[in-house]
Design a binder for these strands. Structure first.
Length: 157
DNA sequence: GCCAACGTTGGC
DNA sequence: GCCAACGTTGGC
């Protein structure tokens, strides 16, 4: 068994924000329609940490943290013709898209902005910070996670 | 609003 | 299987 992983999920706050997450406590991470991101979603294990990132926002950056509450199941929105995420090429017998359920843990007291993150040497390799990175789900290394916790004063115990 | 980067589609 | 065209993402 591999070690506990840490992940980062990206969301536009106009679609789903950290405040929505905080209010709902738990959320099914539906609507990811990219194969690499899908594979990461399927790798997520219960209890693993998930950093929450706001993209396309006034303040772009990491805004909080949650954890994997339930491992990935077939994404129900792919079967719903009314949904924006409907995929007519998928079927219940051979689902194409999967989503875990995430649980809210903590909203950071401030946004760890992209500029601030980019200025940190230990975060130089962070996937989300790479130019042109569009993946909405990415792995975060232990070193990166520790650095982020230290930056924002989040005591992960 | 612009546009570079990227993923997907579809003709061949 | 290649690759041009197209649509989308997301930082600026």
């Amino acid at each position: 068994m591999r070690e506990m992983a840490t992940w980062l999920v990206k969301s536009e706050p106009s679609t789903y924000s950290i405040d929505d997450f905080k209010r709902e406590k738990k959320t099914l991470w539906e609507g990811v329609r990219n194969y690499q991101a899908r594979n990461y979603l399927k790798e997520m294990k219960k209890g693993e940490r998930v950093l929450f990132y706001h993209s396309n926002a006034k303040e772009i950056g990491i805004v909080g943290v949650g954890k994997v509450f339930k491992e990935a199941v077939p994404d129900p929105s792919q079967f719903d013709p009314e949904s924006d995420y409907y995929d007519e090429g998928s079927s219940e017998s051979t689902p194409r898209w999967f989503c875990p359920e995430l649980q809210f843990l903590h909203k950071f007291p401030r946004v760890l902005t992209r500029d601030e993150l980019s200025a940190q040497k230990p975060l130089r390799e962070m996937v989300i910070l790479q130019k042109g990175s569009r993946l909405s789900v990415t792995p975060v290394s232990e070193k990166e996670y520790q650095e982020i916790c230290a930056l924002v004063g989040w005591d992960d115990t």
